[in-house]
């Protein structure tokens, strides 16, 4: 799985961190997403799909 992020569109909601805390974090100063692992293991697939689906700015792209 390959994850890419459109950082310019991120609105800092942190929904991705709630869905997949092993893959996403937020910067302290402005809440913008931090990608901890752009090619996470397969057991993260459902969490990552959930994160991409609930992201309110639709910035997370996942390619299998």
């Amino acid at each position: 799985m390959q994850i890419s992020i459109d950082f310019d569109k991120c609105c800092g909601a942190g929904q991705c961190v709630l869905a997949a805390p092993d893959v996403f974090d937020q910067r302290d100063e402005d809440g913008i997403v931090v990608l901890l692992d752009d090619n996470p293991p397969a057991d993260q697939a459902e969490n990552v799909a959930q994160a991409a689906a609930v992201c309110p700015a639709a910035v997370i792209q996942v390619k299998q």
Partner: peptide
């Protein structure tokens, strides 16, 4: 306070 707020969720 974008990141700090999440701790209150």
């Amino acid at each position: 306070m974008m990141r700090a707020l999440r701790d209150y969720r």
